[in-house]
Amino acid sequence: MKLVIFDCDGTLVDSQHLIVACMNEAFASLGRPAPAREATLSIVGLSLAEAFAALTSADDTDIPMLVEAYKGAFHAQRQKPGHAEPLYEGAREVVEWLAGREIALGIATGKSQRGVRIVMTHHGLLDRFSTIQTADDAPSKPHPAMIEQAMAAVGARPEDTVMIGDTTYDMDMAHAAGVAAIGVSWGYHAPQALLRSRPHALVGAYEEVPLVLKGLWRA
């Protein structure tokens, strides 16, 4: 069984405006200055506690309150008219192409199960994914547990598994799990940073993904 695992934010969906807005609200709720936009985007992919620790410090006593404030802000934003976490161009087509070839698909994300299921249901893609691994189920990236659990869920071997993501956390997680890594250039970490994490390939558009996958599996 071949398995392709996608990150969510920054890889499948563009949620940067929502993430930044909720992060700003979380800090403001405690009367603290919000981090720079670039700093917020740099931690996308981590679970919330690890993300706030990276933006503040690991021993910051406000982290549990910041986490809860962020969750509340995110839920409130989702209720607003015009809320959108759009798919990146070509994402739907590649997901459907892979699903049509009986390749197992998974998601590994710092989002919660509830959050990722809401957004995938909104886009009509939830049933395309055989396994969804989140911050609710495993240690934060780059720990390999999400990938290891996804492989176990569908019966895939490391040599038949590929992780696709936009951050160094995704690339490092893939290496830790012993699977191939494809970096995407349209997400929240710069291509130069991704290259330092040694992806097996770096793509600039979704239309490149099928050919890269074929090459990896031939090799």
Rank of each mutant, 00 (worst) to 15 (best):
A205C: 08
A193H: 13
Y70E: 07
V203H: 00
L194F: 06
L105W: 00
G115F: 01
S57A: 15
R218L: 14
T167G: 13
A153N: 06
L194I: 03
E85N: 14
L46C: 05
I147G: 05
G115M: 05
R92Q: 07
D166A: 06
A176N: 10
G100S: 09
L125N: 09
A73Q: 00
T161R: 13
A201N: 02
R92L: 10
A156E: 10
I43E: 02
A39H: 08
P142G: 02
E148F: 06
R101Y: 00
E85P: 10
D160H: 13
E148V: 12
V44D: 12
A152I: 04
M163V: 02
G90W: 12
E25Q: 15
F129W: 04
H122V: 07
R128A: 15
F52N: 01
A177H: 08
I182R: 02
L202R: 00
D166K: 02
L211E: 15
G110N: 03
H200E: 15
Q79S: 08
A104K: 04
S140V: 00
A84C: 14
R37L: 11
L30C: 10
V179M: 05
V154A: 04
A34E: 02
I5N: 09
R78L: 06
P199L: 00
G183E: 07
S29R: 14
G90H: 00
L3I: 08
A193P: 06
H175R: 15
V203S: 04
D137A: 10
R92F: 03
W217Y: 05
Q192C: 06
N24F: 09
V179G: 05
D166P: 11
S15Y: 04
Q77W: 07
A73T: 10
P86Y: 01
V4C: 03
P142A: 10
F27D: 05
V154F: 09
L41A: 03
H143T: 11
V4P: 01
V162A: 03
P191C: 09
R37Q: 14
R117F: 07
K80M: 14
G124E: 07
A76K: 04
E208N: 04
I147L: 14
G45N: 02
T11R: 12
G124N: 06
P144E: 03
E85W: 01
A177G: 12
G187M: 11
H123D: 06
I103C: 08
M163H: 00
H83A: 10
T61Q: 15
S130I: 02
H143W: 00
S197H: 13
E38Y: 07
F52E: 02
H122S: 01
D60G: 06
T40S: 15
I182Q: 08
H75C: 10
H17Y: 11
H200Y: 07
E159Y: 04
A73S: 14
P210F: 03
D14K: 05
I63K: 13
G106Q: 03
G10L: 03
Q79G: 12
A145D: 14
A205D: 12
K111N: 13
S15H: 07
D59Y: 01
A99C: 10
